[in-house]
Design a protein around this nucleic acid. Structure first.
Lengths: 217, 217, 217, 217
DNA sequence: AATGAATGAGGCTTCATTCAT
DNA sequence: AATGAATGAAGCCTCATTCAT
């Protein structure tokens, strides 16, 4: 499966290189409009106009409006978890981190910028996932499952080392993920705060999680 | 402002009593369809058909499709925070709870059922809030602000009692709210789990928050 | 025929007395809206709302929207020419006037105020006549024909007296009527002129007509 | 301003050349239907059907129903006064005519045919001008003002030559225009007369105006 | 690869009118 | 006499998509 994913990502990048000027403009505009008005409320003609392209051109590259959506969302979502599933890298990875806190800190640093850059696409993804079975499928296969497995392994590992309380794994995952998501949400989506310090917020959040999960209490 | 809100809620209930049979059916169906397909992808003719009503009837009661949406979402969202802002109730409320944990437990019990009953509407709200300035306005005025204020007071109170670490209030709020939201999400939206025990999950979640925020660590 | 008309007018006035409050308000508002937005672009619900009346009430009094239009326009149009056709009055009438100019002056004075008061209805009439055969019929029967006949007699009379050039009667009528209409139009419809003197404009207009028709040239 | 108008007319003709077959058919049918049933009572589906075109096609070419109306009416109305405002032509023009009668005769001949050809559009214009501010604007700018100015100059010129009575210019204009309009109206709109002789009616009308305005009386 | 005219289904909304109260 | 909920046909317009060029 990992092989399949790696292939897919390679293919995506190749495709990206093959893109004509107009095609890139279509994608660019589509991302902007979809995330701003929602998929259903964005018309292909609107995209065409903003991209400076004829209406027909969109359909030369993407057979469907839905196809255009998937072409935008799917590769980004898979790239998001790529670091977690990179072949061979796995095992080395967790050895590197002495504590669960270190692990969280690394993950957060690793993906923080990426999310910032792909915020629009993430927003589209979250808006649309419940309406498109195809998105749900690939979400489960390429994101939820690998991520869950990875987290499960890591958490079990630190539970065995006695750093994490003996709670059901899914409860720990839920707590961890929702706290991290809460951070990213506040930072990137809701935030109107001028005085926000990434480093310290990350640090506090990691500590809240680690303390919450600490067995001594 | 609290008075204003109470008035609004009273008015809503009165309006509810005045509703025609057909009007209730319209609302009922609209909730179902909006939450299932999204607002933009639900047509008024679809609603009319399912409600067994002429399409024109919808527009006799709600001048717009958007108005229909707001008529569904706004009163529910205000009701959601009503217990937090009810006159006089406030002060009694926090005196009652000795610890932050007790407070959280009470809130969760209090609103858990309500959320369950109004899940569809909550889903609609979350899907649509970013596209409708009107929703954002009333969200800020009737939900975010009262809730934030109430939480701020409560948290400061327990910080002064030494039960909560001296972190910035908004960080504590974020951590608490996102963990609680994570619980509700897992329970009501994602959950496919047959073996889920509300009581124990609530208890674990409260403990995770309380431990996370505990000053001794 | 004159008898028929007189009956009609009597009946109209009687009806007017029988009108309920709401009915008068409907008429009043309908006149205003029809003349402002045109018949086709005025909705019955718009009228109902402005008149402070239920939608159904309009249709209790007037079986149709068209019927409402006719109820407004027809009686006014017949009243407009009434003085020209009043029984017995006829003959006395033209004896009274020594010159064609006197005749015109009298007519203009006579109807100037009436037009002012019924301007909205006249506007509606002119807008709608080409779309409603019923209006055309009653126009021909109650207005065009009596008016034409009256003018024909009068003009022939003054031609015989040598005051009016020997042109075809319909040409004289056209010239006279269009000049008078031009005056009324400028005065009541187009006019934005603050410095307008009714008396002198009427006098000049009458002179222009009389000179135009004078045989000595 | 004259330059601006000339540009506009040029542009209109160019656009006319670019027209699709279907587009011309839409215009053609729209003119017919608007003038027959009125703008508000003509539906776009009606036009589409008669033009043998999909309803959507209308809106590819004209963003609105109103836009379709303006596209029909405005260019014709500007063309109607074009000869009065053509650059350079002005001065030559009035030198050519020795008397006011000559001037009128020339104008009438000049525009008589044009009106006949564009009767439907003129009718639409007159019906709709009071409901569409845009029409009023361009009427004032491109028709009323240039026409008024031209007539003013001409009339003053002939007043100075002693051919026209010393009445207020706007009174003279009103008299002249309404008489001419009365002629055109009778001829083209009301006329059911089989025995109508254009030449003689024009001649009589011109004489009536000239006599009316003659200073010797 | 790109265009843009054309489509027809369907979207939201308004309308005149009816009818039970 | 008056109401106002209800209707369904029709109105204007937008949409995703196709196809000849």
């Amino acid at each position: 499966m990992e092989q399949k994913l790696a292939d897919k990502i390679k293919k995506i990048n190749e495709e990206h290189l093959k893109m004509t000027d107009k095609q890139s403009r279509i994608i660019e505009v589509a991302i902007e409009e979809f995330s701003q008005n929602g998929f259903a409320s964005t018309s292909t003609s609107q995209i065409a106009k903003k991209a400076g392209v004829a209406e027909g051109t969109i359909f030369k590259h993407y057979k469907n409006k839905k196809n255009l959506l998937l072409s935008i969302v799917t590769p980004t979502m898979t790239k998001l978890v790529a670091p977690f599933v990179m072949d061979g890298f796995d095992t080395v990875f967790d050895q590197e981190y002495k504590t669960f806190g270190d692990f969280l800190r690394a993950i957060l640093k690793n993906r923080f910028e990426f999310m910032k850059d792909n915020l629009s696409i993430l927003k589209i993804f979250m808006q649309e996932i419940s309406f498109h079975p195809e998105l749900q499928e690939s979400y489960k296969e390429y994101i939820a499952q690998p991520l869950f497995k990875r987290l499960e392994d890591t958490i079990t590992h630190f539970q065995e080392k006695g750093e994490i309380k003996e709670l059901p794994v899914h409860t720990v995952i839920r707590f961890t993920v929702s706290t991290v998501m809460g951070l990213l949400f506040s930072r990137h989506i809701v935030s109107t705060d001028a005085s926000w310090d990434d480093k310290s917020e990350i640090e506090m959040t990691v500590n809240l999680i680690v303390n919450g999960l600490s067995p001594e209490s």
